[in-house]
Design a protein around this nucleic acid. Structure first.
Lengths: 134, 134
DNA sequence: TAGTGCTGGTCTCTTTCTGAGACCACCATC
DNA sequence: GATGGTGGTCTCAGAAAGAGACCAGCACTA
């Protein structure tokens, strides 16, 4: 299942890319990852990957996000080019959020991690329980 | 490049897994992702994927992490079963951190995202610049 | 014509999380 | 005895996140 040699090569490159001598804090890889590491980013990406949603729909879909964080996370995702925001001039103006091509591309990569989490969450839970017991 | 039908199916499943009716905050997928979404988790995983390191080595390797956050992030990664911590009874006791099998497995999935970030950071940077200009 | 509700937000307040750096015990070496 | 390297912990200030009140605009209803 693992082509370890290929993976090892990538690991070294990725680590290098994340360390990127000199301006550590300006490292582009870390900069991109940072934008995705918010508490709600991946969840909203997963929702919007399914279909476009309006603000209120997202709010009802994810009841435990505060309105403030929903606004802000969508703003950040839009700023990074993953999400498109379109305002429709209906009587109460409605706003629709959808993934851009860049967003869909990014989600393709993020997906592997989400899938792994789904497949292995019991292993993590067990590890956590064993650790806390000791 | 995209096998869209397959991906669409996964998307729906992943979103479902992240929403997981009822106990939203106890959703296992979100629980796992949460542990990985810290500022330093992915960077330390990338470092340890290359080779095992000792505490002080990691500190020197990532100069802009505070000692406190290094301790805490390693503790969290260890608790979730990704990292193994071994104390050697040398004269000043030394501590070595390495990836577990679970950690290597997880990094295999995380890797896709890091690779994407490396390949596309200029697109994100451009999107950000365009957004800020408007 | 006033009340109610739906739209997508913003503002303020409180609590939690991070970051910077002082401090610590231990031992070896100088 | 002083100094440095080991892997941490503790305290305190600043940044970020969560809860929830509030807002303008228009439609529908009474």
């Amino acid at each position: 299942m693992d082509s370890s040699l290929v993976k090892l090569r990538s690991k070294l490159e990725i680590y290098k890319a994340m360390t990127d001598g000199g301006n550590l804090s300006d490292c582009p890889v870390r900069d991109v990852i940072q934008g995705l590491s918010g508490k709600w980013s991946s969840l909203l990406m997963a929702a919007l990957a399914e279909q476009p949603y309006r603000f209120g729909e997202l709010r009802r879909l994810v009841p435990d996000i505060s309105q403030r964080m929903l606004t802000q996370t969508l703003y950040d995702l839009q700023r990074d080019g993953y999400v498109h925001r379109e305002v429709f001039p209906t009587k109460p103006p409605s706003v629709e959020y959808s993934l851009t091509d860049l967003g869909r591309s990014m989600f393709g990569a993020l997906q592997h991690l989400l899938q792994w989490a789904e497949n292995n969450h019991d292993a993590v839970r067990d590890a956590r329980a064993a650790f806390d017991a000791a």
